[in-house]
């Protein structure tokens, strides 16, 4: 990494140009965009503007954990008894509320630093739900009504620990990882700790960048993964809202079983960050049964198209299929429980 004053000038110039285009945008009012297309953009933009600050916050906290805290600072205080240790690990998100995207590089760093594979999986599944930002935003959206928030918290804890326990019974947990994980990272340079060299990174001795530069580098890499997913997810969400007739959603949403399955499928495709997914699903609150909402918030926080792509950098496809099936079954069970019992 090296300093480039021309880069700074270029960056400032691009930002100024973007402001100029934005300020001139009223002149484009006569483009005559059809109402439905205009509403699609308005809806997508509302999700993006609502979600982006939380995404930035997640990346900044992730940077603090990965760059500014000493390596091993977290793991040294954990108990040794496996069940208790995994239970504590599943609550780590309360202290480090990075979103699920930031959890993947963090979990890889944990494994290099001494976590077992099942412990890493437990953290990956629990942290997106059991963290203060997710809990606060879910409470803002739904309060304690219909048991949605309580189901999300309890199901997140139980599912993460059950799956962690199941994989701890595996005779060779290391076989759950991709062969190249220990030698390289498919997202190179993500971790900012000094263990990068163990992961095959190529900083020459004596040329290691400073923490500020590593923080900026991490921001660049994280946004490269998260922002496209945020845009595409928001666009799909907006298209769904504008073009799928509400009557179809109503028909699905009022059925105890279909409301759960439909919302889980939606969560898988939309891939909204768990920190803000409660806001997204709020508009379905009057359409879908509470169990469907609870399943969306449980399943979608753990598994979606974006998370599978990220997790594939570390885990084998077979492992991901098993994790996805287990999370789906237990999330559906939680949703059905809410619909039929609560």
């Amino acid at each position: 990494m090296r300093r480039a004053p021309t880069g700074l000038i270029l960056g400032v110039a691009l930002v100024a140009a973007a402001f100029a285009i934005r300020a001139a945008s009223p002149a484009f009012a006569g483009w005559g965009v059809p109402d439905r297309a205009q509403d699609t953009i308005t809806l997508a933009l509302s999700v993006i503007i609502e979600s982006a600050p939380f995404v930035f916050l997640g990346i900044l906290l992730s940077t603090v954990v990965q760059v500014w805290l000493p390596h091993g600072f977290i793991t040294r205080f954990l108990p040794r008894q496996p069940l208790l240790r995994r239970a504590c690990i599943s609550l780590l998100g309360m202290f480090f509320p990075v979103c699920e995207c930031g959890n993947v590089p963090l979990a890889r760093g944990f494994m290099v630093g001494g976590f077992t594979v099942p412990e890493s999986i437990t953290f990956l599944l629990a942290a997106p739900i059991l963290n203060p930002i997710t809990i606060i935003t879910t409470h803002q959206a739904f309060g304690w009504g219909d048991g949605i928030l309580l189901t999300r918290i309890v199901a997140g804890f139980v599912i993460a620990n059950v799956i962690g326990w199941l994989f701890s019974r595996h005779p060779n947990p290391d076989s759950l990882l991709t062969r190249t994980f220990s030698a390289s990272c498919a997202v190179p340079g993500v971790s900012g700790h000094d263990n990068d060299q163990h992961e095959g990174h190529s900083h020459p001795p004596g040329a290691r960048p400073g923490r500020i530069e590593r923080s900026v580098d991490l921001f660049t890499r994280e946004t490269a993964v998260i922002m496209p997913a945020l845009f595409l997810g928001s666009l799909i969400a907006a298209l769904t809202q504008v073009f799928v007739p509400r009557s179809v959603l109503l028909a699905l949403g009022s059925n105890p079983v279909w409301s759960v399955l439909a919302m889980m499928a939606l969560a898988f495709i939309v891939a909204v960050c768990s920190n803000v997914d409660a806001f997204f699903v709020l508009s379905f609150g009057s359409t879908f049964m509470p169990g469907g909402i609870a399943s969306f918030l449980t399943f979608g926080a753990m598994i979606d198209v974006k998370m599978l792509a990220l997790m594939r950098t570390t885990f084998t496809t077979r492992t991901l299929v098993q994790i996805t099936a287990l999370v789906a079954l237990m999330s559906a069970a939680a949703g059905l429980l809410v619909n039929y019992v609560a």
Binding site: R2, L10, A52, T180, V216
Partner: peptide, 26 residues
């Protein structure tokens, strides 16, 4: 948060990283 994001965006132009081409899995 948008203001903080703007700081990081501009800083991303100032601090340019090398492509980690050597890290592709064998």
């Amino acid at each position: 948060m948008a203001g903080l994001g703007l700081v990081f965006v501009v800083a991303s132009f100032a601090f340019r990283t090398r492509p980690a081409d050597e890290s592709r899995p064998a």
